[in-house]
Design a protein around this nucleic acid. Structure first.
Lengths: 142, 142
DNA sequence: AAACGGATGTTATACAATAACACTCGTCTG
DNA sequence: CAGACGAGTGTTATTGTATAACATCCGTTT
């Protein structure tokens, strides 16, 4: 059940393609850099496209990185969980229903009504954990 | 078991006091504004104090707001969970061991080793949910 | 033709964070 | 005591992130 909500404009499609192709988070200015020479010359255009894509659930914003990634399973969800490798930059989107429910339950214990839940885990991915077993790794790729 | 790690400098103490007194998140520049006239005139000083306080576990950074709050239960934890009311700005720090464990479990299923887990819930606090029952509230206080 | 919604362009600016360098001060140490 | 060191700070400048405000364009509706 692929959800196709609104038609995307040229720029919006282009931004989504760039994010998908990158396979890793890109900042708005990374995107702007790639779009210069294609008629896009200023931040607002990029931010507007990103805003739309996030609204449509096609792109996620990683708050702790000030960057954006294409959603791995486009699906309008108010919750996103990411595992971010601080060593190689790999970002994995996790999906876990029970977690979402538990979070909603925990917050609503205090009467809170959550509309947007963001979970971002920082650490080391499997590959990087294996390589640097206990070593002081430099961290932070790209 | 109050943990007192390192003595704090004048500026660090001042920043922590300001955050505690505010009882809500403040940006680095909010703090700078309050510290002008006390000999603090530039961002680096504030950021350095905040960095130290975060390291000591006395202050948390809210990634989704680019702001800082005094930790409600100073305690060196790699995990913080916050419920952020988008209407009145109230921020509540939640503590839930099982959640932390579940998160660690979920991520490690894919071989990920988490060193820092951030959970930020956006929505409406109990008071604001009660007031605006279904109404289109303006959102975003301050 | 006029009105509108959605997207874009453009200029300027605000807000967030850090780099690089010099300086002070207290403590340790030979 | 002299020198070295670490932690904190001051200062200037710069980079990076995001938005305000206003004008334009275009397709659709009425």
């Amino acid at each position: 059940m692929t959800v196709r909500r609104q038609p995307l404009s040229q720029t919006q499609t282009r931004v989504l393609d760039l994010l998908s192709a990158a396979g890793r988070p890109l900042s708005a200015y990374d995107l702007l850099g790639k779009l210069r020479g294609e008629g896009v010359n200023a931040p607002p255009t990029v931010y507007r496209a990103l805003e739309k894509l996030v609204r449509e659930g096609l792109v996620h914003r990683l708050e702790s990185l000030n960057a954006f990634v294409a959603c791995s399973t486009p699906h309008h969800h108010d919750m996103a969980t990411f595992a971010i490798c601080d060593h190689c930059g790999l970002v994995t989107e996790l999906t876990d229903r029970p977690l979402q429910q538990q979070l909603a339950a925990i917050s609503s214990r205090s009467g809170f009504h959550a509309t947007r839940m963001m979970v971002e885990l920082h650490g080391h991915c499997a590959a990087c954990s294996a390589k640097a077993h206990g070593q002081g790794a430099p961290d932070q790729a790209h």
